[in-house]
């Protein structure tokens, strides 16, 4: 934004109609500092004026895990495929938390940021991107917690945990999770600008979807092939199963279904960007 950019080099045309795919990555790159500052803001502002600070990122999954151990492990006596309950539940929870947290925030992009969007221009895509990244930091913290619990059971208990070469897939799994949340979030946020019906739907859909994902039960426990297919059709299922398999050797590494998750991610990202592009220019009139 300095005057050293030669004026004649920069031409901005403001028009009503847009090209179908008009990402303008150059502009997004120019605003990279904003992206980082948004990430910082989202991450830091969460625990401002708290005593425990970032520790809260630990407390939530720990309590959830304990609750699952009591309710699903203790009372309902659901199988954990022979794994220690803490490792089993926590592995599902960290991935699912990241996915659901990022999705519910990105899908609120337009409505939640209407105040800023209505006053100043910057590439709108920066906002959902920053959410996915700042949630990734939160995931990182929880992942460290998971590693701690995992190593405790690996070294100090007689539980049989067999970490294997699939660990190399873990970064890929995280990227797919991020991509899914990002793409779906873009689609939903674009749909909700004019018709709010989706906001109501999404709230409990995310809650219910957890039960359609192998977070509290292993996929191997599902006997009914039709039901299994339904659960596998959930693109997050293969991610959690593979994640668990990589660390414990228990679970399922199914390349076909993992490939399906990747394909699903690519489709929702492309579709999401297409719709987002169409909406972002005029959403202020309808939001």
């Amino acid at each position: 934004m300095s005057l050293t950019d030669k004026q004649s080099d920069y031409i901005l045309v403001i028009e009503p109609k847009t090209k179908l795919l008009d990402l303008n990555l150059k502009e997004v790159w120019r605003y990279r500092d904003l992206l980082l500052l948004f990430v910082r803001r989202d991450f830091v502002s969460v625990y401002k004026q708290t005593i425990f600070g970032p520790l809260w990122f630990f407390i939530q999954p720990i309590l959830t895990t304990i609750m699952f151990m009591v309710v699903f492990g203790g009372i309902a006596k659901m199988s954990t495929d022979g794994l220690p309950q803490a490792v089993f539940y926590l592995s599902g929870i960290v991935i699912w938390n990241y996915f659901s947290g990022a999705l519910s925030l990105t899908s609120n992009t337009f409505i939640g940021n209407a105040g800023i969007f209505g006053k100043v221009y910057f590439p709108r895509i920066i906002t959902p991107l920053s959410i996915v990244i700042s949630k990734l930091l939160g995931f990182g913290v929880q992942f460290v917690l998971f590693l701690g619990v995992f190593f405790y059971y690996l070294c100090f208990s007689d539980a049989i945990l067999k970490p294997n070469a699939a660990l190399l897939l873990v970064p890929v799994l995280i990227i797919i999770t991020a991509g899914l949340a990002f793409g779906l979030g873009l689609i939903i946020s674009s749909l909700t600008t004019k018709y709010r019906d989706f906001t109501f739907l999404l709230g409990f859909a995310i809650q219910l979807a957890m039960y359609g994902t192998p977070v509290i039960y292993p996929l191997s426990e599902i006997d009914n092939p039709k039901l299994k297919l339904v659960i596998q059709a959930n693109p997050v299922s293969a991610i959690i199963e593979t994640f668990r398999y990589a660390f414990t050797g228990v679970g399922e590494l199914n390349w076909l279904w993992l490939g399906y998750s990747v394909g699903f991610m690519i489709v929702v990202i492309i579709l999401g960007i297409l719709i987002f592009n169409k909406i972002e220019k005029t959403f202020m009139d309808t939001v």
Binding site: V13, I14, E15, P16, T18, F117, G118, K119, V120, Y121, K281, T282, F283, M284, D285
Partner: peptide, 9 residues
């Protein structure tokens, strides 16, 4: 902040 309906700038 929002796009025009017609014309260009």
């Amino acid at each position: 902040v929002t796009a025009p309906t017609t014309g260009k700038i």
